[in-house]
Amino acid sequence: MDWREEKRAALAHARLVIIKIGSAVLTDPSGLCAAVLENIATQMAALRGGLGMPDAPCGDGPARRLILVSSAAVAAGRATLARHERHFDVVGLAARQAAAAVGQGQLMRAWDRAFAPHGLPTAQVLLTRDDLRARQRFLNARNTFAELLQWDVLPIVNENDTVSVAELKFGDNDCLSSLLVNLTGADIFINLTSAPGVLAGNPQEDPTVGVMPCVENVGELDLGKLCGGKTTVGTGGMYSKLTAARRAAQLGVPTLILPGRQPNIMCRAFAGEDVGTWVRPAEHAISRRKFWLAYQSDPTGTVFVDTGAAEALQNRGGSLLPGGVRQVEGNFQQGALVRIARLDADGGSATLGVGLSNYSAPDLRKIMGLKRIEVAAILGDAHYPEVIHRDNMLLEAAV
Rank of each mutant, 00 (worst) to 15 (best):
L394R: 01
A141L: 04
R137W: 07
A186W: 10
G22V: 05
P54F: 11
Q97G: 04
S357C: 12
A98E: 00
L180Y: 13
H13G: 01
A195M: 08
A94N: 07
G317S: 06
L379K: 08
L154S: 12
A141K: 08
S240I: 04
V17I: 15
D187S: 13
R316K: 12
G260I: 04
A73C: 04
G22S: 06
M266E: 09
K169E: 02
G348H: 09
W292D: 00
G318C: 03
S30P: 03
D55A: 11
G52H: 14
G272W: 11
R390P: 02
V328C: 05
M53W: 14
L356M: 10
R15F: 10
V125L: 12
E311V: 03
L343G: 02
A94Y: 08
R247N: 03
S349L: 04
L132A: 10
N202S: 04
S178E: 05
D298R: 14
L242G: 07
P213W: 10
R142L: 06
P207D: 08
G61H: 01
H13E: 13
L47R: 01
T277D: 10
R83N: 11
P57T: 04
G105F: 12
I18T: 06
L226K: 05
A134L: 08
M368H: 07
A377G: 13
A341N: 02
H284I: 12
A114F: 07
V90I: 13
I19F: 05
R342T: 15
L183K: 01
E147A: 14
Q250F: 15
G103Y: 11
K7R: 15
A341V: 13
E6W: 09
F145Y: 14
S360W: 06
A100N: 06
V91S: 14
F88V: 00
L149M: 14
T300L: 02
M266S: 09
G301A: 04
Q150V: 12
L132M: 15
A269D: 09
F291A: 02
A101T: 10
G347R: 04
A76C: 06
P254E: 09
E374V: 08
H118K: 04
L66Q: 06
C267E: 09
F145K: 02
D152Y: 05
A100E: 04
I265R: 09
N392C: 13
L149I: 06
A186M: 07
I367W: 13
L132D: 03
R247S: 02
T80E: 13
K290C: 02
A99Q: 09
L120S: 00
A269M: 12
D306Y: 10
A134G: 00
M1F: 15
R78A: 11
L356C: 09
G105N: 10
E329S: 13
V211F: 14
A310Q: 01
R135L: 01
V157Q: 05
S297K: 13
I373F: 15
S319T: 11
Q204H: 15
F270W: 14
G234I: 02
G369Q: 10
V305F: 07
S297T: 15
E220D: 14
